[in-house]
Design a protein around this nucleic acid. Structure first.
Lengths: 189, 189
DNA sequence: TAGGTCATGTAATAGGTTACATGATTGC
DNA sequence: GCAATCATGTAACCTATTACATGACCTA
């Protein structure tokens, strides 16, 4: 996902701690906290971010990270540059590739489980995600943010709905498929 | 993608060398050859695969890997188990999230570039991929393979078509969007 | 008093890419 | 003669996950 640039982007909206950055992610795509800390440390070494120490009474100190000039320039450069697409690497499809080794029922079962999970995700993006974003828009100065954030969420939902449609088709095709011999082993060569 | 299981699956169809495994992947999802060699070595250490050395005249020796009993059991276990889905981590969407920092025209430009790439991929999966698979089916004993491989390819195409549809929508929405103030900086607080 | 939130991290492991190294054969 | 194909790998680097470690405060 290129964590570095997402962190730069988030910090450019508002400086915050590693802990707070972690919570800024949707739960569905949230990286490990330890990874965020390490990436921040690396970026600081490279001069892309820096931090102010914030002392709090009764709570632990925070390192409040912000984007430097160099970091800001790097982010803008990245935003203007086309980034690679990755398709066809999904594990469920990889499984299917070799599924003739197992029973049809097990294959259908997996696809169904998968579809249920996707349905939940769609629901989440249509409700929770929209709510989170609406709050975020409120705290942001730029009027374009609402547009872009909605378009981005719409993108994820479009993807998920494509998976659902595919899963339905797949289950139909697989369950209705009748090979010459399923039980009696006669055609071996 | 869980390379280990894809390699086990490919080898379970037919034993072959690391070099040959590399060529068995669609170019769009092909891992680095060095990664394949390393994964094979790891799997051999764990007893999931082993190899016979094939000496060729005029060509370098091959290590022809095959799946062991343990490897076969491991593959079957994995095939029956639901695997995680990952959605929303696509870099183009991550970019969009922070694109209010750059010009609308640059954003549209990126999405257009992306859509062109997707169109090419769709074309490829509908022609080349089908051809490659047709050859593969021919060399495979199990009658279910053709079904599963077609369903898998259909899945990738469905995904790609969803991206295209989204890209069209996105460009329309972004180009028609008119914020209150783009040039004159008046609403700052 | 047990579990959750706030807040920082290290260490080990796994997965993946790019660059580099070797060397014979084949086709243009 | 030069590039591509066949065939093996090592080394460095980057990205990501899981487990472990610390410690104060707050709530049930």
């Amino acid at each position: 996902m290129s964590l570095r640039y997402v962190l730069l982007g988030l910090l450019s909206n508002k400086p915050r701690s590693g802990y707070s950055l972690h919570k800024s992610f949707f739960p569905t795509v949230r990286p490990a906290l330890s990874q965020i800390y390490r990436t921040l440390a690396d970026m600081q070494d490279e001069g892309l971010v820096d931090f102010d120490r914030l002392e709090q009474e009764k709570l632990p100190d925070q390192k409040v990270y912000f984007v430097t000039e160099a970091g800001s320039a790097d982010l803008d450069r990245w935003l203007r540059e086309p980034v690679p697409i990755r398709v066809g690497r999904d594990m469920p499809l990889a499984q299917l590739w070799f599924s003739s080794r197992i029973d049809k029922e097990d294959v259908i079962n997996n696809i169904t489980t998968y579809a249920d999970e996707v349905r939940n995700l769609i629901e989440w993006y249509k409700t929770e995600a929209r709510t989170l974003v609406a709050r975020g828009v409120h705290s942001s100065a730029n009027p374009m943010n609402e547009l872009y954030w909605n378009v981005a969420i719409h993108g994820t939902i479009t993807q998920l709905e494509a998976w659902l449609k595919w899963a339905d088709d797949a289950v139909k095709q697989i369950s209705s498929f009748e090979p010459k011999d399923t039980k009696s082993p006669s055609v071996t060569e």
